[in-house]
């Protein structure tokens, strides 16, 4: 463990807390893409199946359980409890165009052709594009509530900080995982446009307006 990975995981945890708090407190999931949340649930389910087979550390197990529970809780809020506030008309990204290529790529490019490893690889590829429906929805609605942009900033920062973690681990322990690194860079790059707007607008108290 290193400070970059710890900060990254905390940033991820903060993002999840911001999202759940926003939905619970406002009793509304307006502006939130249910499709992205479905993809995240898929990602964590596929990646954390090793919870039953491998024990890494208490921290690792605890965080995996938190991310699994929170992703399903968010789906429950969006599609059941607060479904009246779900903005279905603006959440129209075709997620099959993200899932299928991730499955194919995971079958073709992986470290080991085993069940858990291919699922892990699928989850890495899918996570790199899982935010697209959410960014697409924000661009369609043309704006995002500031709390939603804080959520996106924390979520984008998590994998961005992981890049520093991978640099540190390569330098300090000659460890690297090219699949995680390439996907992590793609994932972070997808947020760049949003990061720019967040820093130049939201931090100055303005509303986040994405060019539609």
């Amino acid at each position: 463990m290193n400070v970059f990975r710890l900060l990254g995981d905390l940033s991820h945890l903060i993002a999840v807390i911001i999202l759940l708090q926003k939905i619970w407190h406002t009793r509304s999931c307006a502006g939130i893409s249910g499709k992205s949340q479905v993809l995240f649930a898929l990602v964590y389910t596929a990646r954390y199946l090793d919870l039953v087979s491998t024990y890494v550390s208490l921290y690792n197990t605890f965080m995996k359980v938190i991310f699994l529970i929170s992703s399903y809780a968010t789906i429950y809020f969006i599609y059941m409890k607060f479904r009246a506030t779900y903005d279905r008309n603006h959440d129209t990204f075709r997620i099959e165009f993200l899932i299928l290529p991730s499955v194919l790529l995971a079958l073709l490019i992986n470290h080991q052709f085993s069940f858990l490893e291919v699922l892990w690889t699928f989850s890495i590829y899918l996570e790199s594009v899982a935010i697209l429906p959410q960014l697409f929805m924000v661009s369609k609605t043309g704006e995002a509530e500031s709390i939603t942009s804080h959520y996106l900033f924390a979520l984008g920062s998590y994998r961005g900080l992981y890049i520093f973690n991978w640099i540190y681990r390569y330098w300090s322990e000659q460890h690297y995982d090219i699949i995680a690194i390439v996907a992590g860079v793609v994932q972070t790059v997808l947020y760049c446009d949003f990061f720019y707007l967040y820093v130049t607008k939201v931090l100055k108290g303005k509303k986040l307006q994405l060019p539609a």
Binding site: N60, H111, I179
Partner: peptide, 10 residues
């Protein structure tokens, strides 16, 4: 070493 059998990251 490239990759790692045990994925110790989240």
């Amino acid at each position: 070493d490239q990759n790692n059998d045990l994925h110790d990251e989240l």
